[in-house]
Amino acid sequence: MQEASETRARRRIALDAIPEMARPVGLFGTLQRAEVGGSICFSAVVTIGMYNSLPGPGGG
């Protein structure tokens, strides 16, 4: 079964030909225009996300 799926010809479709959702959603931590408050700029989460994305102790 695995072999069959590997040997069959794959049919590709241009990504642009597939509809997108009406409202795009940015990646985590990309809302940066906020004024002081909103608990985003005081939040540890964005920083943690960046920290965890780094190689080394606690990251990776």
Binding site: E35, G37, V45
Partner: peptide, 15 residues
């Protein structure tokens, strides 16, 4: 930050 932000926004972080 307030002085810089002419086009400020209000953010709801979702948590």
């Amino acid at each position: 930050k307030k002085r810089r932000r002419i086009d400020g926004s209000i953010a709801f972080p979702g948590h």
